[in-house]
Amino acid sequence: MTTPTNQANPSHRRAVKPLLYLILMFTLVLALDWYRNQQVPERLPEYQQLIDLYGQEHNLEALSQQGPLLVYFWATWCPICQLTSPIIDNFNADYPVVSIALRSGDNQKLQQYMTAKGYSFPVINDQDGQLTAQWQVGATPTIAVVENGQIVSVTSGVTTSWGLHARLWFYQYFN
C-alpha cells in the first residue's frame, strides 16, 4: 500500500539529481575561471588614468571597494562582442561597469558606434591598445571582475547573462 509520504519521496529524490548537476556546473565554471585566472595578474595594473568618452575619470581601486566591479574589454571589430555588449549593458544598471574599447578607432567613431548600438556603459578608448596590454589581456571580449582592488575573475569569449550573474553573486557573498 502506498502512503502519501511514499509518493512524495521519489519526487524529492528526483529533484536531487538536477541540483547536483547545477552544483557541478557551478563548480566547473569556477574551476575554469580559476584556471584562466592563473594567466592574469591578481593585482590591478599600476595606476591607470581611465577617462571615458565624456571626460569622466574612473578609479577602479576606489570603485571596487564597495562591491564587485565589472571591467569589460571589447572592440567594434569583434563579432562575439555583438553578443556580449548588450549583456554588459544590462548589468550596468545593477553593478558598476567600466569598459575598455580596444583599438576601435578615434573618440568620434567610438561615440557614434555607442550611440548607434544604444549602449550606455562608460567606455574608455584604448585606441593603441596600451591600457589593455598592461592587464595582459589580449582577447576580446574579456570580462574581469574586480573586488577590493583585486582581480578575482577573468572570462573570455561567449558569456551568458546567467553565468555572469552567478559569478558576481558568488564573489559578492563568498569572497
Binding site: A75, C78, I80, C81, A139, T140, P141, V158
Partner: peptide, 8 residues
C-alpha cells in the same frame, strides 16, 4: 578569432 578576437 575563434569565440574571442585578437589583434596581433
Amino acid at each position: 578569432c575563434t569565440t574571442v578576437c585578437l589583434l596581433t
